[in-house]
Amino acid sequence: MMHHHLILRVVTKMLVAPIILFALYVQFHGDFSPGGGFQAGVIMAVGFILYGIVYGMENVQAVLPAWLAHKMMALGVLIYAGTGVVALFLGYDFLDYGSFSPQHPSHGQHWGIFAVEFGVLVTVTGVMISIYYAFASRRPAISDEEW
């Protein structure tokens, strides 16, 4: 590993964990304040993208391989759709969150919204990281010496 940009590497290591923690905060408080799954997913992806920009593709893909990012995209959609399918199997309308707690529909609303927003978080994180991997993995058409 190269030993230049020491300050940038140290600051990045200090920032990645708070970025991911802030993404979880936005996720869990999305129904009480602005935010939710999409915003949390983008913020979560930013932590990995920042790590990849500073430390390189090999290091970030050691933490989150490309195949896992692709699986995250499908898993998030399955969580979202699965929430609606569970409501159907319980005899309610698709994505009728009251089905999760018929005695207290407001509790069911909370759990249903949380499940859907978690699915969005997983999908958006996977998509944003996959887009970064696709662009950052490309070989330049012109070499550095030709500039």
Rank of each mutant, 00 (worst) to 15 (best):
Y92N: 10
T12A: 05
A45H: 12
D93N: 10
F94V: 07
A87T: 03
V85Q: 11
G76H: 01
H104F: 15
G47D: 10
M128I: 00
D96Y: 13
Y97Q: 03
L90F: 12
G119P: 11
V46F: 15
G82F: 00
P65R: 12
F32R: 15
S137L: 00
E58Q: 13
G126C: 03
P105Q: 05
A115W: 05
Y80F: 08
A66M: 14
E146L: 01
D93H: 13
Q61C: 13
A69M: 00
T123L: 01
P102C: 09
V127L: 04
V77S: 05
L15P: 06
V120D: 06
V86Y: 06
G82W: 02
I53E: 15
H3N: 05
L88K: 07
R9V: 08
A17R: 14
L8T: 14
W111H: 14
E58Y: 14
H107V: 10
G35S: 04
T12G: 12
A141L: 15
Q27R: 01
P65M: 04
A40S: 07
F32V: 12
P140M: 09
A115R: 03
F114P: 15
A62T: 05
Y51I: 01
L21H: 12
R9Q: 09
I131W: 09
D96A: 14
Q103C: 11
R138A: 09
L75S: 02
L75G: 00
V54F: 08
A141V: 10
V63A: 12
G119W: 00
Y80Q: 01
F100L: 12
L78V: 02
F32K: 13
Y80R: 01
D93A: 09
L75N: 00
M14P: 10
Y25Q: 04
W111C: 08
I53K: 15
A17T: 14
P102G: 04
